[in-house]
Computed example of a mutant assay.
Amino acid sequence: MNLFFRIFTWKRNNIISLAILFILVVLNFYGLYTNRFYFLKPDNYIFPLLSTIHFLYLYVIWFKITQGEMPDPKMRNLEYALYALLVVYLFKIYDSALILGSFSEYEEHVIPATFKPIGILTLVLYCSLPLFTLISFIHRKRYIGQYNFENYNDNLNIWQ
């Protein structure tokens, strides 16, 4: 387990998570069946808007670790929102697998050659995103600390 955390340090994990999120935001506008990008569909903007929570969480982790700060209630609330976002990620895994599995149903139709490669890439990225998210939770607990707010009011001196 120690080797695992030497390979996936918090910096590498943040960079990989940022790259995966950015690629998935771009691929979210891509239509697998038509080989086109759809920027005018309002449904395509749901994932990018929700992923801002994840981008913000990655920034907060980077900031707290580099500045040596302790966790705060805003960070805790952001992490709880990311727990809910994990359900959206699981739904996107299911949705991508369903679309990729429908290839045999539409063999008679003209399907672009990019259907399988882009579909597999999307599925792999959606499957890896929850794993790197869970790793970032472990890094938060390891480097920033646990959420212990019982004595929060006693240590609220922000001028230190």
Rank of each mutant, 00 (worst) to 15 (best):
M1L: 06
N2M: 05
L3G: 04
R6C: 06
W10Y: 15
K11D: 14
N13I: 10
N14K: 13
I15V: 14
I15T: 03
L18P: 11
I20V: 09
F22D: 05
L24K: 01
V26L: 06
V26K: 04
V26A: 04
L27G: 03
N28R: 12
N28I: 11
F29T: 02
G31F: 14
L32Q: 02
N35L: 07
N35M: 04
R36M: 06
F37Y: 02
F37M: 00
Y38K: 13
L40Y: 12
L40V: 13
K41M: 15
P42I: 08
P42L: 11
D43I: 10
D43Y: 15
D43F: 15
N44E: 05
N44P: 10
Y45A: 00
I46G: 08
P48M: 01
S51C: 07
S51D: 11
T52L: 11
T52C: 11
I53G: 04
H54V: 06
L56V: 09
L56N: 09
L58C: 08
V60A: 07
V60Q: 11
W62G: 10
W62E: 10
W62Q: 12
F63E: 15
F63I: 09
K64F: 06
I65R: 01
T66F: 07
Q67M: 11
Q67P: 13
G68Q: 01
G68R: 03
M70H: 08
P71Q: 00
D72L: 05
M75W: 03
R76S: 03
R76K: 10
N77L: 04
N77A: 06
Y80I: 12
A81L: 02
A81W: 08
A81N: 06
L82H: 11
L82M: 09
L86M: 15
L90N: 06
L90G: 06
K92T: 06
I93D: 00
D95R: 01
S96V: 09
L98Y: 15
E105M: 11
E107K: 15
E108R: 15
V110E: 12
I111M: 02
P112A: 00
A113Q: 09
T114Q: 01
F115K: 04
F115L: 08
K116N: 12
P117M: 06
P117L: 14
I118H: 00
G119I: 03
G119S: 05
G119K: 02
L121N: 00
L121T: 02
V124R: 05
V124T: 01
V124K: 00
L125H: 02
P130Q: 11
F132H: 05
L134P: 14
L134G: 08
L134Q: 07
S136H: 13
F137L: 13
H139Q: 07
R140A: 10
K141Q: 12
R142K: 15
Y143P: 11
I144P: 02
G145S: 02
Q146N: 14
N148M: 09
N148W: 10
F149S: 05
E150V: 08
E150M: 08
E150Y: 08
N151Y: 03
N153C: 10
D154T: 15
N155I: 05
L156M: 11
N157H: 05
Q160W: 13
